[in-house]
Amino acid sequence: MPDDLKLNKPWLVAVWPGMGHVAISAGYYLMAKLGMHLLAEFSARELFDVEHVEVKGGLIRTGRLPRSRLFVWMDPQQRHDIIVFIGEAQPPSGKYAFCRRLIEYARELGVERVFTFAAMATQMHPEHDSRVFGAAAEMGLRGACLLGEMPHIFAQLPFPKASLAVLKVFTMIADIEIDTAELSEQAQAMEEKLGEILAEVERAMEQQMPTEEEDSLGFELPEAEGLSPEDERLIERLFEQARRDRSKAYELKRELDRLDVFDGYEDRFLDLFKKPD
């Protein structure tokens, strides 16, 4: 953390990739809409294994380890600043040690409350409202884990409705306001898509015509395709808009997710939130 940065009663929100992209989507949305900037990089390299290599110019190089970064929003009303921790991945082992180290770092920053976002899979129907469940924190810091409800049969698909529900609860607790219109539209669009999928599944079950090529839900998910020149131009235009106005960053992320290329652009996306020199 920069030596000259003074935080005012900060709260920490920690998110990682997980089921339904519930936590990570909520974290990115909060970060974008509050116009946060990069605070620090959190190092825990020894807890991650090298799982792949990269080939460039005929040379094999060790694959990049997942990064973990913290972004900050300074509350203009001076009630409590908010720090969002975004981890690119959870360590394959040592998760508890990782979390303890993060909490210790949070204490050094003066964090007074800790929140994590997550998903909870239930028997809910995609058309129903997502509930939010809570779990208490430990280690002497006040806080909670907010879990957004999502349908268990779609656990491998994004479910923005749960992200929206979690954000509504958190912003109510934190007494802050953000524009959730984009996330609401995304949630509505996904609800309609999942409703269509369920209808297809029900028809397939009625016809009793499953095939080996179908997945466990009775339908095949579309495969990601390469970027077209039009897609590349759109991405560059959205990057430029987000560079000028960080509140536009979530629109960019939504498009990168739609094109299934966010992993390749993640570092560049997060660079948008670096504090200007």
Rank of each mutant, 00 (worst) to 15 (best):
P2E: 05
K6R: 06
L12F: 04
V15R: 05
M19Y: 03
V22P: 00
A26W: 10
H37Q: 03
A44Y: 05
R45F: 01
R45V: 11
V50P: 00
H52W: 12
E54I: 14
G58A: 02
G58F: 00
L59C: 02
R69A: 13
Q78W: 12
D81I: 12
Q90A: 14
P92S: 02
G94N: 08
Y96G: 05
Y96H: 09
L102S: 03
A118E: 15
M120V: 14
Q123T: 14
M124K: 14
M124G: 07
P126W: 14
E127I: 09
H128I: 01
G134Q: 12
E138C: 07
G148H: 02
G148V: 07
I153S: 01
L157H: 10
M172Y: 15
I173K: 11
E177K: 14
D179P: 13
E182Q: 15
S184M: 14
S184T: 15
E196G: 09
I197N: 03
M205D: 12
M205P: 00
E206H: 10
E213M: 04
D215N: 15
F219P: 00
L221P: 00
L221N: 01
A224Y: 15
S228E: 09
P229G: 03
L238A: 02
F239Y: 01
Q241T: 05
R246S: 10
K248D: 08
Y250H: 05
E251P: 00
E251W: 00
L252Q: 02
E255S: 00
V261S: 01
Y265G: 04
P276N: 14
